[in-house]
Amino acid sequence: MRLLPVLALAAGLVTAPVAQADSGHTVRFATFNASLNRNAPGQLVADLSTPDNPQAREVAEVIQRNRPDVLLINEFDFAPQAVDLFRDNYLERGQNGARPVDYPYAFIAPSNTGVLTGFDLDRNGSTNTGNDAHGFGLFEGQFGMLVLSKYPIDARNARTFQHFLWKDMPNAMLPDDPATAAPKDWYSPEILNVLRLSSKSHWDVPVKIGRKTLHFLVSHPTPPTFDGPEDRNGTRNNDEIRFWADYVTPGKGRYIYDDKGRRGGLSPSATFVVAGDNNSDPLDGDSVPGAIDRLLDAPRVIDPHPGSYGGVLAAREQGGANATHEGDPFFDTADFNDNAPGNLRVDYVLPSKGLIPVRAAVYWPTDELSRLNDASDHHLVRVDVFVSGR
């Protein structure tokens, strides 16, 4: 049996067979920006309604060849019907010799993308474009998120932060209007009274692994580009990343409230894995300097430094901006435009202290499976962690 908790629907918990942890075992966590977004509402459902969509088949094969136990998919439009279609028609059918993979549990919830604010956020004279939404999108839910799991998801205790207001973050890095001397004045007080922090959403998804609960903390901060000198996307990207750093650091998350009104961050005794496309490289690219370091350097976070030889070869062969990068291409996770910004490390799987990283990798094949590198401009990132049964 499957569980598909959708926040907009009152779905309950369903049990399904799952391996039990006694003394403990290794669990594979992964994130994959799979580019399963579409340009119109209903299109993803249509594409997944048959088992022969080429891109969806490639995405499914990447997942089957990596076989994560708990997976975040970024850029999966908010279409609950599409979840079962993707599982039935793609993941549970072997792709090009890869073994089928079964995820009995799923979590999907609404996204801020495409939800119009009623204001002209980019000052282009219109209030009804994707740039005027709480998160860029041509329709509500475009570029959403999906969590798939082989282990039970405690949907009743999941926390979502879709409606958290940006201005409610203490010392928020709000953008400045470069035409004035006033600080943080790109957005009017009226806009800030409605503008949400999350460009998609932030979710705390509890996963039951044996007798333990592990919190899967997932998000997809906005790219720090596609704006102007006010850097409204760069500053927001910084604070979307900071949200999780504050949430998992004792004493820093008191200001946070979720969509049910519950306040506070994560319990200091809880274990977690932060995952997602954070659109921020530690050394290169266009994000605010130090943005991702807020999370990487948080006292309870472990960076297992996943990497690939494929990233090294790609940077060497493609050249362009890659030749000027400070970061080691071994850690790159995304293959972007060669001229700018080049390949970057933007996708992360970060376990907490209390978990033991066993191995970590970026899936960037260089053999006959390199054809799968075209599935998305991002690569799946995976980290195996040992979860104690006690």
Rank of each mutant, 00 (worst) to 15 (best):
G42R: 09
P41K: 10
D281W: 05
H215V: 02
T333Q: 03
A155C: 09
A8V: 04
S267I: 12
D374T: 13
I108S: 10
S308F: 09
A179K: 15
T26D: 14
D22F: 13
S126K: 15
N37G: 10
A40G: 02
A360Y: 04
L148E: 03
K208L: 13
L148K: 05
G253H: 04
R196E: 00
K208H: 07
N157F: 00
A340Y: 15
E326R: 13
R57Y: 03
S280Q: 08
G354K: 00
K150C: 08
D168M: 04
F107S: 05
G125C: 11
R316D: 14
A181P: 00
P17C: 12
P170S: 07
D286G: 10
P250I: 08
K208G: 00
D102K: 12
D332A: 10
E190Y: 01
V62P: 04
A245W: 06
L13I: 10
P100T: 12
L72H: 09
K208I: 14
T113P: 01
G290I: 05
L296Q: 11
D120P: 12
L121E: 03
R242M: 03
Y348F: 15
T113N: 12
A270T: 01
A340G: 10
F272Q: 01
P5A: 13
H25P: 00
Q142G: 01
R300S: 15
V248C: 11
V147E: 07
A82L: 09
D154F: 03
P223V: 05
F107C: 02
Y187Q: 04
R390V: 07
Q64M: 11
D88R: 13
K212W: 00
R65S: 03
P54V: 09
F76S: 07
A323C: 00
S49W: 07
I108Q: 15
P351I: 04
D77N: 07
Q162I: 14
N233V: 03
F86Y: 13
S219Q: 14
K184M: 07
G234F: 03
L192N: 02
L13A: 14
E140I: 07
I356N: 13
P68D: 09
R123E: 13
T113R: 14
G285N: 05
D293R: 12
A172C: 03
T225Q: 03
L36F: 02
S198Q: 14
Y363I: 06
N131R: 09
V115D: 15
A334M: 10
